[in-house]
Design a binder for these strands. Sequence first.
DNA 1: GATTTACGTTGCGAATCGCTACTTACTCAA
DNA 2: TTGAGTAAGTAGCGATTCGCAACGTAAATC
Lengths: 158, 158
Amino acid sequence: MGTDKYRLELIDCGLPSALEVMGDRWSFMILRAAFNGICHFEDFLDALGIARNILSNRLSRLVADGILVRQVCEDDRRKAEYRLTEKGIDLLPAVLALRQWGEKHGLGVASNSVLADRRDGLPIGPVGIQAHDGRKLTWHDLQWLDRSEIGKPGDCCD
Amino acid sequence: MGTDKYRLELIDCGLPSALEVMGDRWSFMILRAAFNGICHFEDFLDALGIARNILSNRLSRLVADGILVRQVCEDDRRKAEYRLTEKGIDLLPAVLALRQWGEKHGLGVASNSVLADRRDGLPIGPVGIQAHDGRKLTWHDLQWLDRSEIGKPGDCCD
DNA sequence: GATTTACGTTGCGAATCGCTACTTACTCAA
DNA sequence: TTGAGTAAGTAGCGATTCGCAACGTAAATC
């Protein structure tokens, strides 16, 4: 790859803060369920097979982190509704990338439900890395740069 | 969103098998370090601040899962080299998506090292969801479909 | 009022985490 | 070739977390 020498302290990127929230199996599964429209406690419970206390813990953590919002259901005030925030919806690429990887390489069964483009009903393509202009990039097309040495960020988007 | 009714058992997608491997904080961090070119035990140790036994455990698990390969260094047979396999490299979109999310929403500092297109030296764009033809899609453009009801990828309408 | 439902909490044993110290194997210099 | 140093991995041990089950509570339902 593209680095001439190790940069041992580059690890302070966005990953640690992301993993503080999502760095456990259940958070991803809960998100996945939320993207499927599940929003009630007991439904998460049934769908995931998670223990009650763990689910309770994770849901409140996800709420505290602004990924879900909790509000009591109008027509049945026993129920709580956990809904994705914009911040939570922004996690969809990560969830999908992981899921697609699992389906490509894992031993798991291919799911029978597929995300599709609403416009034409065709399944989405793989989540991938793109250049600033949208070209698809692979790992071998990439190099690590220091923030100082990036080619003029004037004529590029962001 | 696009589902007429909850599908409680759709959770058996690729996610669980992916999370069996990556469903913990350190695996992601190790991968991240590996993408930065780190490949020796002690270097992972220094870069991540992980405990020795945990690192040992995770590395052998990642090797067992075919994400890394371990081989003894030629010029110094004390050292082991952990290198990404193709299967491991395929995880880059997931790692990047998570990192980008963390940098957009997290409290963490923006990293000073950036992945850039080798061709023009410009930083990569955000990892995102694309339609089969490459159009960028957001969550609101999507719907869940059952595998049976996907439109054939040949007869695109619209 | 009594029962059921939805959500959450508590207790407890088992597994995991992380720190430290120890072991083994190899390299290098004297 | 002997002794110091380095790389990788293991073992012990307290602290945290996990997961199961039982319990608590409020709202809906009968």
